[in-house]
Design a protein around this nucleic acid. Sequence first.
DNA 1: AGTTATGGCGCC
DNA 2: AAAGGGCGCCATAACT
Length: 561
Amino acid sequence: MQSRIALVPDPHGPGGRLQRLGEQGAALGPVLPAADLAAAVGELEAAEQPRWVWATADSAYAPLLPRLPRRLGRCHDLRLVESLLLAHDGQWGAARSLGAAWARLRGLPVPADLGEAATEAQDSLFAPDRLQLPPGTDPLAAVVAVHAEQQRRLAAIEGEPERARLRLLVAAESAGALTAVEIAADGLPWRAEVHDAMLTELLGPRPHVPGTQPARLAELSVRLQQALGGRPFNPDSHAQVLKAFADQGIRLGSTRTWELRTVDHPAAELMIRYKELSRIHAAHGWAWQDAWARGGRFRPEYVVGGVVSGRWASRGGGALQIPRLLRRAVLADPGWRLVVADAAQLEPRVLAALSQDAALARSAAGGDLYQALAATAFQGDRGKAKLGLLGAMYGQTSGDIGPLLATLRQRYPTAMGYLEAAARTGEEGGIVRSRLGRTCPPPSDAWLDLTEGSGDGEQGPRSARARGRFTRNFVIQASASDWALALLAALRRRLAGLPGRPHLVFFQHDEVLVHTPAELADQVVAAVTESATEATTLVFGPTPVQFPMSTAVVECYADAK
DNA sequence: AGTTATGGCGCC
DNA sequence: AAAGGGCGCCATAACT
């Protein structure tokens, strides 16, 4: 039986307190004070690899990490688990902090979760942490009690394998918390000089005065003005752009790029170019570099479980939206490599495994799922196969997709039935869960008001169908997240077993980057492959569906695939 | 002056 | 007639 140890750092200084726990969470033995918490934790980790129990990885692991001799293997993150359990129980309004969970347990007034506005206060040494404990509460006692309560709630989950799956989700989500802290500490290798050269080539030299427009944007602005009659206007203002085009007799419904592409006028092309460049300047220009990519590393702030589907979100820095163009600036250190790995066609494979559609599973048993699908059902037209399947998973009905959906329904009734059942549940106001038990939010009160009594006409009310699309996609996206988290946890563990400290530096829904000494790259690739197999077995059990990873060993991120 | 909404687009 | 899921972030516009 694996040991568990509760861990609480002192608010100031390097010390902290520890408490051994039984599997159900009962405190075993005395509270152990540690003058040097990192040293104590390091020794215990080396001796017995316990599961560390803490309020949040940010508060307990992040400060410890720089002083630990090696990374920790496992944890139980109370805040993330509270979130999973509350959602599973349909309690979406409830606060998730340690303090909130403790207050619920004790029948005390429950503190609201701090908004993101409170983040800046963390910089202050004396700012309160975000645990939200009532004054005078012993944080270690709260950690122990809330953990025991969570173990009790997990044990009370009805049904097997549901209970075991939710426990797996708890472990995987917690491993995600470890990973996010470590990625933040390590950072993604980022060559500012490469980034800078790209910006200079695209936009002109960096303006000396911050806030002024780079030369290339200013030029485009002037040329646009000339092309549209010479009257000055702000190309960043949708209203003014629409008016400027209208004055030339061109009526636009929007300033979207795809619409501009249909316009046969020199200004349209200039406008498209202006938008491309101004976006790069605004979103990933010099200001972004100064704020997020200093010292040779891009350090994003990930928010584990930040999306209801279990995907990570990010806060500041746009970690999950780095333009492909800028991957040129992501370069391994000298003597190191990047192993870039992404799960190929993850979502349709998830659909095949979830629905157990035998025919779809056959298409998902090999390399290119869409090609296999095309060969069976679409006369070899891979594009149609992909469009149709993605449309089915998103609930798309527009365009020329109707015939494709009809073909899919005919050939893969089990898989399509699975999606339609999920959509129906959503339309009727029900909830759905991912493979491991992550739960979607219920309809809002406004939604219930809107849909109540409006009858079930041919198509149902618009918002009901929108919710159907949400639940239809949720089962896929959230189960894909389950799988990706399991992959991440498995990979993290395997990397820890390699010498030379290869480490994860990026995670984006279905893609991972590992920064590794060059001579270990092959072993890292093998670890990725093994981890995918392990994740598949853990999440889906025995299944004919394969989840292949496409991997590349590169020095530059842009050179992958 | 500060907050919220909107349009638009980057990523999956 | 049209009807694609999930995010974060920017600038502008519209508010309080």
